[in-house]
Amino acid sequence: MPQYILLLYENRPGVSNLSPEEMQKATEKYMAWAKMPFTKGAQRLAPDHGRVLRPNSGKAKVTDGPYGETKEALGGYYLIEASSYDEAVQRAQAHPHIEYGGVIEIRQVFGT
């Protein structure tokens, strides 16, 4: 079965003002999605800026990553199974992330 990576970009302003009770509701919704049988893996990324290496006259130039305070940071990813892109999109659409203002990017894993 083809595999897809779902990259979840966070929308901090969209969730940081929720009340603790509302955050619990959100967490429960996220968890309910995550334990569906089609999810094959998941990782949360550390909430820092990350680093970017770019070529600079043949050497690597290291800078802080693209995610400042204002940008939507890449928060984590899921590996899911789906029979087609359409189904992968469908599954991603059911994720509560969108409801809370987050962005999801889908890429198929090559060769699957």
């Binding site: 966070e10 969730v15 940081s16 603790p20 955050m23 619990q24 959100a26 967490t27 996220y30 968890m31 999605w33 995550a34 998941a42 990782q43 949360r44 909430p47 928060g75 984590g76 899921y78």
Partner: peptide, 17 residues
Amino acid sequence: AQETILRALQTWPYHGV
């Protein structure tokens, strides 16, 4: 306290409760 709860929301869905 608020930031901590937010971290839980951002972490637990990936790594479990």
